[in-house]
């Protein structure tokens, strides 16, 4: 039992369960899942469906963060990928042509991949800090996306494309299937093959990894490329779901949500051990939080306040300095100053 409590996924899982519980109380039939017209329907399915792009982006982000890096550009890549796919599809004579849609998807994903390689090269070959290296694409990428869409919102009317983000396959929303596939693939590459070990080694101690003969440069390029690809797929999903591409707003701030999901999922921002399951949990928490806020009738504009609260609490709990200070205080409460200090820093939390 105590071993279970110490497991690092316990707290995220508990938070998610709590959120779901709140929903069960406030929404009738929250847990019911039904089959209508051969499709699965229900609030839980919706959370998964709407959360799918975030889970994808967060999966890519997990590996990047595990190497001790960060990728700020994923939001821009989301926009670029959706924009490029929609642009090509809108140019097709027959928007329903499966071949044309597949080609468009392939081109969009290839570009996402290339953007990921670019980030990886900046970080590993040139040696720029990850935050700064990916900031470049974060800024320029929005412009690129709008350049692709020519500042318009490109609307497409393509059944095959719609399938990616809004369709169903085997009664399941297609997005969930994609997430499941990517998750399985990631888990296979990192846990079944040895990529995960090398990533964790590089993030845990870069110099020791070098001396153990790990090609850390290759590992870095790989994780940024993977993050780019994940963001590209997420971009397709988002634009497919609304059958349009908006270079300005698609994937706005998804990088922050993704980083948050990773951190909530127990992967430390300083790199090392990562947990794919934790990230999925983290992303689901964020998505459920949004759903919950709607369902319990809190005005949706306070979503960000809750998020701020969650970020702060999770990060404080992860901070060793915080734990040390709090526990010391509990053990022997010293007089005066520390309490005042705590109050002061409590305000902006």
């Amino acid at each position: 039992m105590s071993a279970l409590l110490r497991h690092r996924l316990v707290w995220p899982a508990a938070v998610l369960a709590g959120l779901l519980l709140v929903n069960v109380i406030f929404t009738d039939g929250f847990l019911s899942v039904q089959i209508r017209d051969g499709h699965l329907y229900g609030s839980l399915i919706d959370i998964l469906r709407f959360g799918a792009p975030l889970i994808l982006v967060a999966l890519g982000m997990t590996l990047v963060i595990a190497t001790g890096g960060i990728d700020l550009s994923v939001g821009s890549v989301v926009a670029i990928s959706g924009a490029l796919a929609c642009l090509q599809i809108s140019g097709l004579g027959d928007q329903g042509s499966v071949g044309g849609v597949l080609a468009a998807v392939a081109v969009a994903l290839a570009l996402s991949l290339a953007l990921g390689v670019w980030n990886g090269l900046l970080v590993s070959a040139i040696g720029i800090q990850p935050i700064i290296a990916t900031l470049i694409l974060m800024v320029a990428g929005r412009g690129l996306a709008q350049l692709i869409t020519d500042g318009q919102i490109i609307t497409v009317n393509s059944a095959p494309y719609k399938l990616i983000g809004g369709g169903y396959w085997l009664t399941l929303p297609f997005g969930i299937i994609i997430v499941a596939a990517v998750l399985t693939l990631t888990a296979f590459l990192t846990r079944r093959l040895a990529l995960g070990l090398l990533i964790e080694a590089v993030g845990g101690n870069a110099e020791a990894s070098r001396l153990a003969g790990i090609r850390s440069r290759g590992v870095l390029i790989m994780v940024y490329t993977f993050a780019g690809l994940c963001a590209g797929i997420a971009g397709l999903m988002i634009s497919s779901n609304v059958s349009s591409a908006d270079g300005n707003n698609a994937g706005l701030w998804i990088e922050l949500d993704a980083i948050l999901a990773v951190v909530i999922g127990g992967t430390s921002l300083s790199g090392g051990r990562f947990s794919l399951a934790g990230t999925v949990l983290g992303a689901l928490i964020i998505q459920t939080l949004t759903t919950t806020i709607y369902s319990i009738g809190v005005p949706p504009e306070t979503t960000l306040l809750f998020k701020a609260l969650v970020v702060t609490i999770v990060c404080l709990l992860q901070s060793q300095a915080f734990r040390a200070k709090v526990f010391r205080r509990r053990a022997a409460p010293p007089a005066g100053r520390p309490a005042a200090e705590e109050k002061k820093v409590g305000v902006p939390a």
């Binding site: 093959l193 040895a194 990529l195 070990l197 090398l198 964790e200 080694a201 845990g204 101690n205 110099e207 020791a208 990894s209 001396l211 153990a212 003969g213 790990i214 090609r215 590992v219 090392g272 051990r273």
Partner: peptide, 26 residues
């Protein structure tokens, strides 16, 4: 500084160099 990957397990630390030599696909 130059040997341990502190968060990884004894087993993972032990096979690290061998795994690095084999590459991640094997």
């Amino acid at each position: 500084a130059e040997g341990l990957i502190p968060d990884l397990s004894v087993r993972e630390n032990l096979v690290l160099a061998m795994q690095a030599r084999r590459g991640w696909t094997r």
